[in-house]
Structures are given as C-alpha cells and as structure tokens.
Design a protein around this nucleic acid. Structure first.
Length: 263
DNA sequence: CATTCATCCTGCTGGC
DNA sequence: TGCCAGCAGGATGAAT
C-alpha cells in the first residue's frame, strides 16, 4: 500500500515527534512481528531514515527496520489508544507509536549496524538521493529485457515506486507499460527519468494517496487520490486525449494506461 | 543470471 | 439476502 511518498510523509511527521525521545517499553501483540525488543528498551531515538519504502529507526548500534507492506500504519499518539490490527506498540517518553497492519505483510526487524548497512545497500537507487542522476538511471536500465512496468516495481533497481505511481509515471511519460526497457529510445528514457521525481514530490505535497488503508501518523488521509490521472480509472476517458483508459494485469498487478497516448 | 508466478494475510466489493 | 470469485498501495522464493 504505501509507496515512497506515503512512507516519506510518515517519516517527516514522525521525526519531528520522536527524535531524541527514549524508547521505554515495547509490546508485541502478534508473534509474526516478534523481535528482541528488550535489547533496545532504554535507547534514545537518534534518527529515522528512509530508503525506498523502508524506514530505519536508529537506536544507537541497533536499527529497527520498519516496512509497511500493503496495509501497515504507524500512528503516533500522546496516550496509548486502541486501533484495529495493532501489532507492535512502542512506548516513548513523550507518547506512543502504534504499528498496525491488517494484512500482515509489513516487517519489523531489529538489525545490528553492519546488517543494517548491508540491507540498506541492497535497496535500489532512491529517487530523492543525490545518486539519482540520469547517468545512474541509464546504468540501471542498461540491457534490461523486462517490461518497463516490472522494472519500475523492482526495488533492487529504483526503490520506492509501487503500483499506483508506476502507472502514473508511465502515463506522464507517454510510455506503454508493456514496453521492454531495452527497446526504449534515449529520448524515452529521458522522459521516464524526468517524470519519476516530480510525480513522487507532488504526491508528498498532497500527503500521499489514500485509497483504502493508508493513513498518516496522525490517522488522517492523504489527498493525491484526487489527482490521479490513470490509476483506478479503467473505462474513464484519458485526460489528455479522451480515449478510454485500459486496465491490464502486468506482473500480476493491475496496470492502467491510455492505449493511444502511451506507445 | 533473469524472469514469471504463487504465496503470505485479511477484508471488502460486485456479480449472480 | 447469500455466496463466492476477484481484488487490494508489497516483496520473496521457487520454478523455469
């Protein structure tokens, strides 16, 4: 569910609340999310970092990896409150951080610094990092025979794009999702590259896209769903040319595109 | 190696 | 109204 923009909104909101706070207690309500919480009780929260869709809560030598999967939420409240599908409760000196996850595809793992560095390195290029240049983009696309939609969803190459923003980025780039990466012209690659960051930035300005489960750290929704051009719009007319938007399963995920604007 | 596909889980919606 | 197939913002590991 949450893609880069949603995770980044949560990170920005949370960092203001929890940086410098002490982790006083951890309560694990579902063993699927078990981690040795005692090891980090008493630690100070040094930072909250993001790469792609992954969050890393820095606690001295330990890092807590947080991934929201399809339905994960991180809600900060001043007092302990009950939410549906809560899995892990973090009690901080100034409040409570509740991790909820209806579908249980999320992850909470405690990693030693070295392991965190290794995991971090295995995550692909983050579009908001300084390394995300056209040159590096060309390198990761080099020789790839997979469909461009699959390429965008693969977190080992570029990290953070999920099913909604993949469709939105490809529409804005005028590229058909079935196109193989190695058939894209230089001009098309440039177009694709130049649309990735602006779409994600626009979504962040809207505090993310709420279709179903996504909630900000205060429980409120995002608003980018009102500005989607193709995602979820099968049968509606293309905002650019008026043709009907099509839905097709690509890589087992619903993909939306305009058959006449995207070649 | 690269690529495709089922699978993990729970709940909701739409068609019959 | 009831049932059931299909769908949902992700990622992985097995099979090919």
């Amino acid at each position: 569910m949450p893609e880069l923009p949603e995770v980044e909104v949560i990170r920005r909101e949370l960092i203001a609340k929890i940086k410098g706070q002490k982790l006083e207690k951890v309560e694990i309500l579902d063993n699927k999310f078990y981690f040795p919480g005692k090891a980090v009780v008493g630690s100070e929260i040094k930072n909250l970092l993001r790469k792609g869709k992954y969050l890393f809560l820095e606690l001295g030598d330990w890092h807590l990896l947080l991934h929201l999967g399809m339905s994960g939420q991180l809600i900060f409240t001043e007092e302990r409150r009950n939410f549906p599908y809560e899995k892990v409760i973090f009690y901080l000196s100034n409040g409570v951080l509740t991790f909820c996850d209806q579908r249980k595809f999320g992850r909470v793992e405690l990693l030693r610094r070295e392991l965190k560095d290794k995991v971090w390195q295995q995550i692909g290029l983050d579009p908001f990092s300084a390394q995300f240049t056209f040159e590096r983009f060309l390198q990761v696309t080099q020789g790839k025979s997979q469909r461009v939609k699959d390429f965008l969803l693969n977190q080992k190459r570029i990290a953070g794009i999920g099913n909604i923003y993949a469709s939105e980025i490809l529409f804005r780039s005028g590229i058909h999702p079935q196109r193989k990466v190695n058939t894209l012209s230089m001009a098309e690659k440039e177009k694709l590259f130049t649309h990735i960051k602006p779409v994600l930035e626009e979504a962040i300005r809207c505090q993310g896209t709420t279709i179903r489960n996504y909630a900000r750290s205060n429980g409120e929704t995002g608003s980018f769903q009102h500005f989607l051009l193709v995602y979820g719009k099968a049968g509606k007319s293309c905002p650019r040319c008026g043709s009907l938007i099509q839905r097709e399963k690509i890589a087992n995920r619903s993909t939306y595109f305009c058959p006449s604007c995207q070649k």
